[in-house]
Structures are given as C-alpha cells and as structure tokens.
Design a protein around this nucleic acid. Structure first.
Length: 711
DNA sequence: AACTCTTTAGTCGCG
DNA sequence: CTAAAGAGTT
C-alpha cells in the first residue's frame, strides 16, 4: 500500500519521507520539496502513525497551503476539511478566535494589514503630538514589527539611547491603543498566540498532545518568534519535520532568521540534515552556474545541486549600452523564441527591483507582445476595496475607529477635519469609540447624523441577507459605486467593487459560511491575486523575490549591475551581500532550459542618469558556461534568430566592470555631441573620463554624472 | 470642503 | 522620473 506512495522517490527523498521522529530536510531548488512534504503527510496518515487531525502543517503562503491540500486529497481518500494545514498567520488566527477570551481579545477582533497599521500609527503619533519629522511613522512601524517578530514587547525592548527609548514608548502606546480598539496586526497574531500558549499550560498541553507531527515548509523563512511558536506546540514526544533551503533565504528584511536551521538541529539533537540535491528542473550548465555563485557564500549548511539531464544550453550574456537597448534585446529574443514555438508564458523577465519593469514593459508594448506584470497592489489592498471593507467592518462592529475614519467622509458627506476633531475629542473624553461619540453628539450635525443613520440602516437592512447579497447591498448604498462612476478613470474601480461580490460568493461556497466576520478575516489574511494585465499566453515580468518557487523554460535575468544587483542598500547591511547572492542563486535556478543574463552600462534611475558596472555576480559565473552576445558595432540591431552571426567574445582588453566606455571608442554627449574617449583618471566615484570633441576640444567629466552614450 | 499644487521618497513583500 | 501624500488655495 504505502509502496504506492513511495514509488518513484529517489533515495534521499525516500529517507526524508519516512524519517523517524524529527528531521531537517535541506531541499535544494527543484529537488521535489513539495512532493516530499505532501508524501510524508500521506505516508504518516496511511501507515496510521497519525490521524489527519493529529498533525499540523505550516506554510508561508496561502497558495502553498492550498496546493498541499490539493495534492494530499489526490493521494489519499480523506476529507482535508478541518485539518490544521495553513499559514502561520491563518493558524494563529484560528487559535486566537477559538480562545479569544484566554488571549484577552474580543471575539470579533479585526486584523490590520500593513496599510491599516501605518494609518493607526500615524493617528497615534498625531494624538500624542509627536513630530513626525523626527519620528518617522514608517520607521516606527518597522521597529514595532521587528521587535514583535523577535518576540519582544515594548517593555522588553533593549533601548540604550533616548531615541530608541522613545520608539519603545510609542510601541507601548500603539499596543495599548490596539488593545482598546480590539485590532491586531500581523505580527501580533503570532506574538499573541505565542503568549497564549506560553502562559496557559492546560491549553498548551492540549495542543501538544494533539499534534504528534508538525511539518514546516520554507523553514529558512521562519522568524525567531515563529520558531518559538513551533517549539511550544511540539510536545515532549512530538516530531518536527522542517523542510527548507538556507541558500534560498531571501527574506531577512522581514524577520526571517536562517539561524533557525542550525538552531533546530541543536535543539532536537539532529546530527545532520537530509539533503535533497538532485534537481529535476534544470540542465547542468544552469546548475553549475548556480553552484559556483552560491559557493562564494561563507555561512552555508552546504550542498551542491546536480542533475542527470545533461549539459543543455550555454548561458547567454548580453551587455547593453542603455536600458532601452537591454529591453529591445530581450524583446528580440522573445520574438525569436516565439517563432521557434515557445509559448510566451514559458518566458520570464526578472529584475531586482520593480521599477526596472518600465523599460521592459515599454519595449514589449511597442512590439505588441502580451505580458503580465506581477507585483503592485493586490485585490484586497486596492483603495476602493478597502473603502468597501471599511463599510462592512462598521456594519459588523461600529466601534471600529479605523473603519470609521476611513469612510466617515468618503464619499464626501460634509464632514471635515474640524468636525472630526470635535468627535475624537468627545470620544477621548468619554472614553468611547468615535461611533459612540457620533451617536451621542452628532445628532446636531447633519453630516454625522446622516452617516450614523446610513450605517444603522445598512445593518438593519442586510441582517438576514446571505453574505454576497449583503455585501452587494452595502456597497450599493454606501455611495461608493456612484462616486466612482462620476470620477474619470473610475470604471476599473467600479468593476473591482462588483468583483467583491463575486469574491464573497466564492468564499462562502468554499468556506461554507455566510458570516461577514469570517469574510473580513479572510480578506485580511489573503490579499488576493496580484494585479496582472490581461492576456492568455503572456510573457511573465516579476522581481526575483516574486519568482521564488516558480520555474520557466527561459529566464531573462536583467539589470545585473553593481548597485542594482547586488543592491547598494544591501551592502551596508550585515550579511547583506550574502543575501543578495542567495537572491542571485534563486534567480538562476528559475530557468529550466535557457538563461539570459544582461546588464546595461547606463540607465535612468529615479530620473537620474546612472553608470553601472557589471555585477560581481556576473563574474562569479564560470566563463566556460557563458557565451557573450554583442550588439552590432552601431546601435543594437535585431539579429534574426538562427541566422545570427557567430557571437564575438567580449573584448578582454578591459574588464567589463570598471570602464563603461572603451578608450578610443566614440561616445555622444548631450551638449558637445560626438567625441572620442581619450582616457580615465581617478578611482571609484571620483573616476573622470576624458573625451575629445571635434568642436569643443578635450573635456573631463566625472564618470558617474557624465551623460555619455556609446555610439 | 473640494480642488490643485507642491513636496517627497523611491529594494525586496508573505500574511 | 513618477506616484502618492500632505499642504495650500479657492
């Protein structure tokens, strides 16, 4: 029986799936990690080592959780409903809703997303009369979240300097305000349920006895708090099975601590991780490049990817003179690949920062190619949706001050800053919510009174309606649709508001509930799909971070320049360069068959001209694996695919790094026109370049600022 | 109180 | 440069 499940696993995968007790699985990119995880769950259940209700499986994304459940139900004839499989936040939410009393929370606590949290912080700093030039709300937000992710409350923060002490003080005020208002931010979900389990021995022992097996995906992304949470849930006889890849740890900036992998081995007495190193995705040229790059990192658990799929194609490198040329090169290659029959959706263009998508989008658009951009706002984060949700939240709980403030005057109903100030003064003095203050004192003011009547009417009217109809009704009467219909460019927003009803419909079908509160929690915990342009078979554009976990036949890795990738900000951070290198490793291993790496000597960044040297990561790829393509001597002209002239090796005389313009080559200056590069002097940022112009003679420019282009 | 203008910040982003 | 937020204007 179980042999069916285990069929086709390689020895390492087999060992991981059937490991006894706790284990750490070091799963390289493309090594069948998800398969191992789901097969282990199925195997544990099938061999009766655990019941479906006796295990806990944690992922980072809703998508991963959903996929795990889908695969599981394909493997075993069990009902996955009710199993504890989900994201850290989803499971903590479940725990806190079930035990809200013990956790000191109202049953209907609201969840703040990042935007909500920031506006709460801004509001708080305003009432405390804090100078926001000195205490940046966003810095405070990061401070609060970082500390919570490390498991620290305001009174436990180590604050040696006055500035940090003030931040800690505001942190405490913020938590107090959240507690008063019954709202919980993302980090709080985790911290609060950790405290719940830590303080309540009965509860803790109950869950420890229940969850005999705890399984964690993407373990390298766990924060210290998440690790502590897992340890609390794991009872004396419980097993913790963690799967991760330290080389793909790219989320330190949001609290992930790779150190958890080593910590886990120490804490559970695991001598060595089980390594999955056979890669089923890429050809060996690509893996060799990835191995070589990541080999430059110091602190690794250590592993090398390999494949029996053969060498495959050489990695193609292109050096553009500006970002426009880089983009046109990508487009030409995409068109050639398309002619050879490769689907657009099999090709991805990756970049380090989202701002870089512009140039690529422009070129794709000009060429009439379909593309999808990932990143940006997601469905439940859009302003019109958040407005609609605020109405829903007020109907569910009128004391929700955040929701109140968001829509009390949107659409405009004559309630200005002055009126609001009176309201919040009244609320503070009476120690009540804004809503209560509005009911008490607002009767005189027509705008406020109308708003109170509107919300009360909405609640009364929609009480008995099923979820989707309720939402449709509230959205319609809120005046949001009318407002956006009058606004130019408002069609999309109206469309999204209508889509909200559909979202509610599919939610109530899937979750089998008509509860508005459940839907609101769902909206907070799952922000929905990223915006993506229409197009069935479209080229995929996304940041390297967004590409983690995905794979494509062909990958264009663009913008490989110092300062951009590795990003300059990362160089000042502890272990920043190593994290950037891991990001490079993730990027390379996305490609199944063909990998392009490109960089540009010049690009506009924030409207400023910038001359980037080739990324050090480019030079860390062994030369033998790379073939350099060069543009024609003049501006790059599209080579016909297949009939391209034999690529010429990059001129080795000068390292492609330090000098963007070769001595003796012709360059163009916006003011002086065409000239010849005479030479360089100075180092680093001081580097100057000499150019002789036929009309203006010899000129020296600071290389960093000179607007020179090769011609 | 709505509208327009100016200012400012700008790596990556799950829940 | 460009989008969004805050300040100033009508």
């Amino acid at each position: 029986m179980s042999s069916d499940l285990l069929n086709g696993l390689n020895p390492a995968q087999h060992a991981a799936v059937t490991a006894q007790g706790s284990a750490l699985v070091l799963a390289g990119a493309g090594s069948g990690k998800t398969r191992v995880l789901t097969t282990r769950i199925a195997w544990l259940i099938q061999t009766a080592q655990v019941s479906p209700m006796g295990l806990l499986a944690v992922t980072f994304t809703n998508k991963a959780a959903k996929e795990m459940l889908t695969r599981l139900s394909a493997m075993l004839p069990i009902n996955t409903r009710g199993m504890w499989v989900g994201t850290f936040h989803g499971l903590c939410n479940r725990l806190l809703r079930t035990h809200h009393r013990e956790a000191g929370l109202p049953q209907l606590f609201q969840i703040l997303d990042q935007q909500d949290q920031l506006s709460v912080i801004k509001r708080l700093l305003k009432t405390l009369n804090v100078d926001t030039d000195k205490y940046d709300p966003r810095k405070l937000q990061a401070f609060i979240n970082m500390n919570k992710e490390a498991g620290l409350r305001a009174d436990k923060v180590e604050a040696w300097d006055p500035y940090t002490r003030r931040l800690a003080e505001y942190f405490g005020e913020y938590d107090a305000q959240c507690q008063r208002e019954g709202v919980v931010d993302f980090a709080e979900l985790l911290l609060r349920s950790h405290e719940l389990l830590a303080r309540n021995a009965l509860l803790r022992e109950h869950y420890q006895e229940r969850f005999r097996h705890i399984l964690v995906d993407e373990f390298q992304d766990t924060s210290r708090l998440q690790y502590a949470w897992l340890q609390l849930l794991r009872g004396p006889g419980g097993a913790l099975f963690a799967v991760g890849d330290d080389d793909q740890s790219i989320y330190a900036f949001r609290g992930a601590d790779v150190g958890n992998m080593g910590q886990l081995m120490t804490d559970l007495g695991i001598a060595a991780p089980i390594k999955l190193t056979q890669n089923y995705r890429s050809h060996s040229t690509i893996l060799d490049a990835a191995n070589a790059v990541i080999g430059n990192n110091r602190n690794r658990l250590g592993k090398e990817l390999w494949t029996d799929a053969g060498k495959g194609e050489v990695i193609r490198h292109f050096q553009a003179s500006d970002d426009g040329e880089e983009a046109r090169f990508v487009v030409e290659e995409i068109q050639a690949l398309r002619r050879d029959g490769l689907g657009h959706s099999q090709m991805a263009v990756l970049y380090r920062s989202n701002a870089q998508s512009r140039a690529i989008e422009h070129a794709l658009f000009s060429a009439g190619l379909p593309y999808k951009v990932y990143g940006g706002l997601r469905f439940f984060e859009r302003a019109e949706i958040k407005h609609a949700l605020a109405y829903l939240r007020l109907v569910a709980n009128p004391d929700d001050d955040n929701a109140f403030l968001r829509v009390v005057n949107f659409p405009a109903r004559g309630i200005g800053a002055r009126g609001l100030e009176q309201l919040s003064d009244a609320a503070r003095q009476a120690g009540t919510s804004l809503w209560a203050a509005a009911c008490a004192s607002g009767a005189g003011k027509k705008g406020v009174a109308a708003f109170v009547l509107l919300i009360e009417g909405l609640r009364a009217d929609s009480l008995e309606l099923p979820l989707a109809e309720k939402i449709e009704h509230i959205v319609a009467l809120s005046g949001l649709i009318a407002h956006y219909q009058n606004e130019k460019d408002g069609e999309d927003r109206v469309e999204n508001l209508r889509e909200l009803t559909n979202a509610a419909l599919s939610f109530s079908a899937e979750a089998e509930t008509q509860s508005l509160e459940d839907f609101l929690a769902h909206a907070a915990l799952e922000a929905g799909e990223h915006e993506a342009q229409a197009g069935q078979d479209a080229v995929q554009l996304m940041s390297v971070h967004a590409a983690k976990g995905l794979e494509f036949h062909t990958v264009f890795l663009t913008g490989l320049e110092e300062g951009l990738f590795p990003h300059e900000n990362a160089l000042n951070e502890a272990d920043g360069l190593e994290e950037e290198r891991r990001l490079m490793y993730v990027a390379i291993t996305r490609a199944r068959r063909r990998l392009y790496v490109t960089h540009s000597q010049y690009r506009l960044l924030h409207g400023q001209p910038r001359y980037g040297l080739a990324s050090r990561f480019l030079e860390e790829i062994p030369e033998a694996l790379v073939q350099s393509l060069r543009p024609a001597r003049t501006a790059y002209q599209a080579p016909t695919y297949g009939a391209r002239p034999t690529p010429v090796a990059v001129d080795a005389a000068l390292p492609s790094g330090k000098y963007p313009h070769r001595i003796g080559s012709r360059v163009t200056h916006p003011r002086y026109g065409e000239g010849v590069v005479g030479g360089y002097q100075g180092q680093g940022a001081e580097t100057e370049i000499r150019v002789s112009f036929p009309g203006a003679g010899d000129k020296w420019f600071i290389l960093e600022y000179a607007r020179l282009t090769n011609c």
